[in-house]
Design a protein around this nucleic acid. Sequence first.
DNA 1: AATAAATACTTGCAATTTGCAAGTTAATTT
DNA 2: AAATTAACTTGCAAATTGCAAGTATTTATT
Lengths: 148, 148
Amino acid sequence: MENKRELFQSMVKRFGLLNKNCCTVDNVEISLVQSHILYEIDRREWPSMQQVADALATDLSTFSRQVQSLMKIGLVTKVPSSADKRISVLGLTEEGKKVALAIQKDMEAHLEEIFSHMTEFERDMVLQSIKLLNEAMAKSSVCCKPMY
Amino acid sequence: MENKRELFQSMVKRFGLLNKNCCTVDNVEISLVQSHILYEIDRREWPSMQQVADALATDLSTFSRQVQSLMKIGLVTKVPSSADKRISVLGLTEEGKKVALAIQKDMEAHLEEIFSHMTEFERDMVLQSIKLLNEAMAKSSVCCKPMY
DNA sequence: AATAAATACTTGCAATTTGCAAGTTAATTT
DNA sequence: AAATTAACTTGCAAATTGCAAGTATTTATT
């Protein structure tokens, strides 16, 4: 009953390690944080800096610099919004999309491999559980309020 | 079927935020990494530097310095092993144990709160699922081999 | 028994990453 | 029109990282 933390800690750490496997695609090497940024830009429709920085729970100044480096290696675009010129709209370049997709495929494959060690029934249960967990965390007062 | 990554990413990020809530106890303020070190030392029986560094997937040199700072604030002890003088055996001071316990309680409370948004049935299912997931990840070739 | 090799760390870098504070420019209030 | 707020950017300075090169101790080799 009271080994919850251990279970979670262990799972999260493992997933973190898995996550670290990412990030060299097409002769481009990117960091874990950078891959998260690509991921977040990819799944949104032309988000602003604020939006993504919030999603990643990063300081805007830190984020600003990270975006600069991603622009430098040609994965991300940043255009001032025509509606509000204070806002910069983020997007992925073709290469950025390619990299994001490659990482996505890689992660999917890893997850598939992990799920292959389960029965069909277990797979369904686990996925169902993670959904539940996410909903519960979203409802929770102690965590993750500003989340998608 | 292919939203696995999203589910995982979301869950892990949320848990990460929750985790960040840790770390100010008894006028002692510690970092997330430091809390993980306390946690790992606590759950092992007099581990060596290597063992904990491996568990945290940190470079030994980085870890060495982190231990130094934890010793400086009086949370961790480091004694050369009598059996093998190359090895340093790590432990928690009384204060270290207190801090570790406080964090533990805090995390448990957070998790309880999260689980309170579920039915009894769902709770059981989710815990069961996380166990399954951990086992599957342990079996996996792509992740987390050197893990407890 | 002496030398070589491996192990467990520590220290010296140098690079990266971080957040805060203080800016700039643009939009919104009053 | 002036003041406030919002969306960023830049200048620090501190913290964190890993690699390479060290030391000390133990194990293996000859």
